[in-house]
């Protein structure tokens, strides 16, 4: 069940004269998003079991790749449990207009992972959980599903085609949980080189929306 009407009109990035004909019933229809919606709306255990079967092995692998301070051998299964419980509890708040189920689950996993590592390596009381940093303002701007999907496709396609030197840094940061500085040390590269490789990768995936990049984008399309 979708809570809001979906804004399918992409105001900014559709070049004049090339307006695509849109299917007005545009919805997120990938398997995982539909399953997640069922879990949220109907507490569907069958759907949850399918999500579990697909994501649990990936989440465990994601946790095991981590080499951040605080890592411990049981992190994999602990993370699977914590993330999947949160997925069940928070599924009703999943907004399919904004992100695919996979991206949503990634953000839950990222937040859980950093909290577990911080709790393990820190004896002080931590007043904030990682999800506190991700609180959306109430008057969040409506998002365009079409534009979301387009950027998802762009990220997917261009991520797989990144040169190895850019790809390896993103993997160190996202999977191993390294900072840019740590990545530069491990790869024996100056920090400036690491930063500029990441920047190039972000430009290729069209992630940057600052006005200074808009020209580059419109040249490409």
């Amino acid at each position: 069940m979708l809570r809001k009407t979906i804004d399918i009109v992409d105001k900014n990035s559709q070049p004049a004269g090339r307006v695509a004909v849109l299917n007005t019933s545009e919805k997120r229809s990938d398997e995982w998003s539909l399953l997640l919606i069922s879990v949220g709306a109907e507490r569907d255990r069958q759907a949850f079991a399918q999500l579990f079967k697909h994501f649990a092995p990936l989440l465990k692998s994601f946790a095991q790749a981590n080499r951040h301070q605080g890592w411990f051998p049981g992190l994999g299964e602990d993370l699977v449990q914590e993330v999947m419980i949160k997925v069940w509890q928070k599924a009703a708040g999943y907004n399919p207009e904004k992100a695919s189920a996979t991206t949503w689950i990634y953000t839950v996993a990222r937040n859980c992972r950093i909290d577990m590592l911080r709790r393990k390596s820190n004896t002080q009381h931590l007043p904030l959980e990682n999800e506190d940093y991700w609180h959306e303002p109430d008057e969040d701007t409506p998002v365009s599903l079409l534009r979301q999907k387009r950027s998802e496709t762009k990220v997917q396609d261009s991520l797989s085609q990144l040169p190895k030197e850019q790809d390896e840094i993103l993997r160190k940061v996202y999977l191993e949980g390294k900072s840019h500085a740590e990545a530069s040390e491990e790869l024996g590269l100056p920090l400036g080189t690491v930063k500029s490789r990441v920047r190039l990768a972000l430009q290729k995936m069209q992630i940057l929306v600052s006005p200074e990049y808009q020209d580059e984008l419109s040249h490409e399309s």
Binding site: P57, L58, S61, G76, K98, A99, T102, Y106, Q156, Y174
Partner: peptide
């Protein structure tokens, strides 16, 4: 939101663990 898609994509490509 777009950067999270990078993380999401890398998660999907992970070698599934047992």
């Amino acid at each position: 939101l777009r950067l999270d898609q990078v993380g999401s994509q890398l998660l999907t490509e992970a070698e599934p663990a047992e």
